[in-house]
Amino acid sequence: MPLTIGRRGFLQGTAMAGTALALPYAAWAATPFTMQAAWINDAEFAGYFLGMDKGYYAEEGLDLTYLPGGPDVIPESTLIAGRADLALTTPDTTIRAITEQGAKFKIIGAQYQKNPIGVVSLKKNPINAPADLVGKTIAVPPVNIVTIEALLALNGIDKAQVQIVPYAYDPTPLVKGEIDASLDFTTNVPFTISQLGEEAHSFLLYDHGVTLYNDTVVVTEETLASKRKELLAWLRASRRGWIEALADPALYPPQWETTWFAGTGRSIENEVYFNTAQKPLIEAPGGIFSMTEEDIEKNIQALAAVGITGTREMFDTTLLSEI
């Protein structure tokens, strides 16, 4: 290990020295900064795409590298491994990492004030509330087991009464009636279901006690201390990007058909639907990414229901107050 760090440090040192000699002003002007997203490129990250396209990050002095996610990518791991400065995470996993793994993370903002994850069913066989899940089969991505456990616990339902099966992100079993519901982004999958000739019905977990943020903006304590200026710059540029991306949710997704959304396998109409549906979940009176004391407390309480002990110290709102 000392060898590796030494070599990395050496390489970085030389690289910096090289750029500093050659281009002192440019190097100073654009600081490299890497963010790890939570999933593949879709409308969930529209604000960042816009910020990069319009040069908002560059204007703030950031040279932003954007890393897309995937099923095996744990955004928190990218932070721990030092491959990104900032990551978009689910708050339950992040707080679990802090309490159980001793990871030194701080949540510095929240993209979704209300988690878009919900229980999606078909209108002809609707699941209206958690109580309706009793005796039914719900497909849940294995990584989200904690979330469904929280929903059941907070609504006094015994886990044994609900059949939970793995969800492989394909809505076909739901449409064909093989399962009764799935746990998915309500901003996304209802569109696909309508394309398949069925009407979707859904409720947000948020409205049934699981009062969590999602896509929480997470950094390590070390980054928070050493890159404060860059983090402020990232928050400012990202907020600017989001405001514009949501102003007319249908405007930008079509423009990214051949850039950000090229080859994702998803349709542009789907992204427009997504961006429109997520608008009320992202916008906040205190500005995008804001975290009110009340909401932080709600997050901590919801997590307590599944035995995850969050504290106010895990959230850092000082950056938000400065932008």
Binding site: I40, D42, G70, P71, A168, Y169, D170, P171, T172, V175, N188, V189, T192, I193, Q195, L196, G263, T264, G265, R266, S267, N270
Partner: peptide, 14 residues
């Protein structure tokens, strides 16, 4: 990656 993005479409032909 393409497969992953396409899964959510519920479109077996793809």
């Amino acid at each position: 990656t393409y497969l992953l993005g396409s899964l959510g479409r519920g479109e077996p032909a793809r």
